[in-house]
Design a protein around this nucleic acid. Structure first.
Lengths: 321, 321
DNA sequence: CACGATGGTGCTCATATGAGCGGGGGGTGT
DNA sequence: ACACCCCCCGCTCATATGAGCACCATCGTG
């Protein structure tokens, strides 16, 4: 260390290094050219540039003016091994505005990555609804409903219309059905799954290539499913390590599926089917969901994320622990 | 086309580009490695990086925290074709503080570039004095006085001691003499040049390899020589195009030596001898000297500069005209 | 003074990289 | 529908580049 520059060597060395760095980085000349120009060996030039970078004389910044924090996106993508990742630098003041912004970002992402050969699956979540609302253009693909809907009391979402809306924007066929996400008993669930529309949608799940879902944490207000579950069941599932919920599938902190009675009463995609989908985009906001997102990613069920900077930073910090 | 990205694509493209750029610039991976990692062709990677740079997604800045503006130094060096160049970003408030700072910078530069094989020549100038004061270490080399001293009224400079001081710091022999820079007539000058000490110093001028000088502009307060010249002579020389003065040599705006009666009455290095010195470092401050510095550099008598940012910028602007 | 440590330099050779080319593929205008 | 055009992609081959090595000067030390 402590080679020559910056701390030692003197101003001439410093200026020479700066000149070389300027020629190389800003003017785009090759090292050989620079070597000839300055009457140095190309090795010397390479070493100067090396020094210039390591000493901080040359600073390289990545970023762009806009709502997408590309740098953070790239870091999060790398850290979690994601397929795609979009992090907005929206200030996380109000959940609704956050959801709206992420909806726009997710819509852009989706319309970018969807190709005419894809089959799109949508899980029910408010954030996915927000995306549907923001969606403006998309290749015509089949759109498949992956889970039953779960209306929350006083919901203003046109949630049931989600799949139809997206299909309309897309121009492709819609495979949707009217059913709740969870029903009181397994028999009812089985019966519902026999329903023609449900069966039709479910038969397509295996061919879904891209899906969009929300990620819930197993806590109040952090998961629609949690909120619509009985007190006893909540506690029991929590005690069995349930940490996150993705399209009705329960996951523990390690990313393992947690089998439960609840599962049999669900109308929706299974964990195995979910994992089989090549790309699942999770739209998530709120730092309270940090561990849940980590779990969802570890489970292999979610491999792309659309989120905001504070959660992204929390995820990176947590993943580094 | 006008979505979010650099001009094409969507957020995924943007983030991919950012990831690639991060891996390349920040992590220093090769393009081939990146291509493998992202399952792209290396050409694609190269094109992404190309886009990232041209679109401004990747910003490269050169600079360092300190008093030396390396970026500006490099630019000025390139623009004027200098051998060395040090530009301090000292705010040019008061000439004395400026001189002091430049003295420090010049001292650092000199001690860096002087090797034991050099022979150092010093012209008389306050800025050179400032350098001498700031000088702390230097290879032991002979130090040669290049011009007579020119004390200005009420001078507090220990100017005559300049050569001796530097030689003392250096540890090498000092070749100095007590004589004024200009005398009333050519005969006196010739006689003075015969003086043993003067002759001894002058005999060494041919072997001087590095020299330090000030640069004066042919205007009041901009040149010691000007200030000690008669009104008539000032005007006459000005009318003959004299623009700058370096160690007693007069130069016009084109960089040509201006022959004058004054020249014959000078005790000091000649223009030809000056040009023969491989490296002459000029220490200059004050934007009023912009044209003078340009002339001095064009003349080939000065090929390194120690100056401050505003003058450096003025020089670049002027050189671009 | 001899010694090894140290750091800086330029070399060789395998590899990475750039410039320019041709070949689709999809959108467009008639 | 057809031809056309433009853009994007990956190839070839000459060149630039990096890793490691051997050499040399310098310097502190026994």
């Amino acid at each position: 260390m402590a080679t020559t520059n910056t701390g030692a060597g003197g101003p001439a060395q410093l200026v020479l290094t700066a000149s070389v760095a300027r020629r190389y980085y800003l003017d785009g000349r090759s090292k050989v050219e620079i070597a000839e120009e300055f009457a140095l060996s190309r090795f010397k030039v390479a070493r100067l540039l090396e020094d210039a970078r390591s000493s901080g004389l040359v600073r390289i910044e990545i970023g762009h003016p806009g709502t997408v924090d590309v740098e953070l996106s790239a870091r999060l993508m790398e850290k979690l091994g994601l397929t795609h990742c979009v992090v907005t630098d929206t200030p996380d003041d109000h959940p609704a505005s956050l959801r709206e912004h992420l909806g726009v970002a997710a819509a852009e992402l989706l319309s970018e990555v969807i190709t005419p050969d894809d089959v799109l699956g949508l899980a029910w979540a408010r954030s996915v609804s927000a995306m549907a609302t923001a969606l403006q253009h998309m290749a015509p693909v089949p759109v498949v409903q992956l889970t039953g809907a779960l209306a929350r009391p006083g919901a203003d979402d046109s949630s049931i219309e989600l799949v139809r809306d997206v299909a309309r924007t897309s121009g492709g066929p819609a495979y949707f059905f009217y059913a709740p996400m969870a029903v009181p008993d397994a028999a009812t669930a089985r019966a519902l799954r026999q329903q023609p529309e449900v069966a039709r949608a479910f038969s397509l799940i295996g061919s879904v290539t891209k899906a969009v879902a929300g990620v819930g944490a197993w806590a109040p207000e952090q998961s629609t499913l949690f909120d619509s579950t009985s007190e006893a069941e909540r506690a029991e599932l929590a005690s069995r390590g349930v940490c996150a919920e993705v399209s009705g599938v329960l996951i523990d902190i390690e990313g393992n599926t947690v089998p439960a009675g609840l599962t049999e009463r669900m109308i929706g995609i299974t964990a195995a089917q979910m994992r089989a989908v090549p790309e699942v985009i999770g739209i998530v906001y709120g730092t309270g969901k940090t561990l849940a997102v980590l779990a969802a990613v570890r489970s292999g069920m979610v491999n792309s994320l659309v989120t905001h900077s504070t959660l992204a930073e929390a995820l990176i910090a947590e993943a580094e622990r």
